[in-house]
Nucleic acid binder design. Structure first.
Lengths: 358, 358
DNA sequence: CTGTTAGCGCTTTCAG
DNA sequence: CTGAAAGCGCTAACAG
């Protein structure tokens, strides 16, 4: 009743387990007749190799762990999608682990990965998780995407500061002056860097700042948006720390009877799929999310293959977001967009896209 | 330079590996003094148990495999999110495997899971994958979510037929008569069942049918929508096989200068998060996706724990979608929605939601 | 080319 | 309560 093992196959084929292993792994020389006997036995016994045992023996699991703070929203799912595509191309599996509220939990998750994965991609917004990760993981290759420029360790980071500056400059260029910011949560590196970019760009332009803290969620964006329009001296533009908050803010503004972008212009960050589907379409800073995920996985695989050798790859790759102007910040684009931009959005713009059955 | 093993710990603590194992697993009796020595050694050596080795020894991997056809769109990411929440609650990890275009690839993916997982959740739209799955996986507990009522095997299936009927009846009740359907791809069980429901409801009402085939993607919905409005005898309502196609169709209609719902009413299926964020909000058949994922995982865990014993759980659980009326199908709701519904959407309605730190 | 054997790192009887 | 030893299923020298 139990599943067949390599030994059962060897017995039935009347050869040694070594031979079975050889034909199955493709390594080592085998006679055609041996191969045939083995394959027949495999077929007859419905034998499937036990990858756990193989891993223990070879010290390679062919799986990569991804540590995420959360799985909510489109950002992470897009990222995972990109990683998954690359993973299967390289013959790797992906094991995801999310919902790590604090550094404590995240480090436990990382620890539990030992012996289960060949490498780790860590997205941790916790300020100190970087060190935790490295100390806990031992000699496990790790690629950091925690939002902080972590020199001396392989990492990928978005140019959040530069992106925020672009956003603000765009709003100023289109005539806005009372520009508010809905920030991500305190303690989150990405959030703080985007905030810093906003503050600097505003200071450079000699404009007064207004900041409301959100939590990178749509709901928090809605609250923040409502608060901003309720206050005296309503802003004429809002730069939200990410798209989900921008979406929430947009709905809050519209609930309040305000027009986006006529009364208030809106800019987000990330360019999640929904950004182009909102009406008005949301201006944002595009990160090709899936592509970034793909690239991260590819880099980690390289790291794994180079394990031990040259510790050459220690760079911090910077992803520069690109400003995508849509109607939410630019009345002028509104008309044109109804055909051109909309059609493009509807057809999908990202690479790595696919036709999803269901 | 290599990571410490249990043997290193035993040596340093001057006890046997058995004792180390005992204190680490919490099983078996140990003296306080022994425990203390072991824990000190663990600390000093930064020892982390090798879960792969542990798995081989205990025949439990504490991980569950999820076989998906794709990772594109919000449906699957929501599902995975729900599963992940439940998984960590039960101490399980999730290993995802997607992008299996044909049954061949899917079965290879399933095979490669042996020795890596304790159970499998298979979402396969391929008609015959059910049998494949069972034959390939040997004695591995499997929960099927392939859209077909697969009696005699643990499974969860959405009442696609009933949902489609509800959609059509709703459209008829609100005065529509020329109701077209954008179907999912041929060969996909869910798609075909929804189509069948549409056809039957239309037949029951003695109305003529129009069907355009899509691929469950936004892009295909856009194409289908464009085609439908371009033809003579334009429909006054469209029931799309899922939300992503409905979204695509909505944009196509708006591109064509038509009003939703005044000119054409629109109904989707799934209630992905974006459905409530579109303007007009999309009427759809709500499946609490994350909750369904949670429930699926929970059931599989039960299955795993009961392995061997009572083969009692062989039922096909049916998830009944609930009609959620939003403005896309009902002009009357439009005004009210601007405050009530919108606020609710913005605040998030699903359970299992969370505040995602980017 | 093929078989024997020694592990991979951990758990778990079974004696002591 | 603790230690020795036998595997879990597979791969990889190393002899033949």
């Amino acid at each position: 009743m139990k599943a067949a093992t390599i030994r059962d196959v060897a017995e039935r084929a009347d050869v040694s387990v070594a031979s079975v292993s050889r034909v199955l792994t493709g390594a080592g020389p085998v006679t055609d007749s041996t191969r045939k006997k083995v394959l027949e036995a495999v077929e007859a016994l419905q034998y499937v190799p036990h990858s756990g045992a193989r891993s223990l023996s070879t010290s390679k699991t062919q799986t990569i762990g991804v540590i995420l703070p959360d799985l909510y929203g489109e950002f992470f799912s897009e990222l995972i999608r990109g990683m998954d595509v690359a993973a299967r191309a390289f013959g790797y599996h992906l094991i995801v682990s999310s919902s790590h509220d604090d550094a404590e939990e995240a480090s436990a998750a990382i620890r539990s990965m030992r012996g289960r994965v060949d490498g780790l991609i860590v997205l941790s917004p916790h300020l100190d998780a970087a060190n935790l990760a490295s100390s806990l993981a031992g000699r496990l290759p790790i690629l950091l995407m925690n939002g902080g420029a972590d020199a001396g360790r392989p990492s990928i980071v978005v140019d959040n500061h530069g992106g925020a500056v672009q956003a603000v400059e765009h709003l100023i260029a289109t005539g806005r002056r009372r520009i508010a910011h809905i920030s991500g949560p305190t303690g989150n590196l990405e959030a703080e860097t985007r905030l810093a970019g906003y503050l600097q760009a505003m200071a450079d332009a000699d404009l007064p700042t207004t900041v409301v803290e959100g939590a990178f969620t749509q709901a928090s964006g809605h609250r923040a948006g409502a608060e901003l329009v309720a206050g005296r001296n309503r802003p004429d533009a809002i730069f939200a720390g990410n798209d989900m908050m921008a979406v929430g803010a947009m709905l809050a503004l519209q609930d309040a009877g305000l027009s986006v972008p006529d009364d208030v212009a809106l800019v987000g960050f990330d360019d999640v799929p929904i950004a182009g589907l909102m009406r008005p379409g949301l201006t944002t800073l595009r990160i090709n999310i899936a592509e970034t995920g793909r690239s991260a996985l590819e880099r980690l695989v390289r790291l794994i293959n180079a394990a031990g050798e040259a510790v050459a790859d220690t760079a911090c790759e910077v992803v520069r977001p690109e400003l995508v102007v849509r109607p939410s910040s630019n009345p002028a684009t509104q008309a044109r967009t109804n055909s051109g931009e909309r059609a493009r959005e509807a057809a999908g713009t990202s690479s790595l896209k696919g036709e999803n059955p269901q």
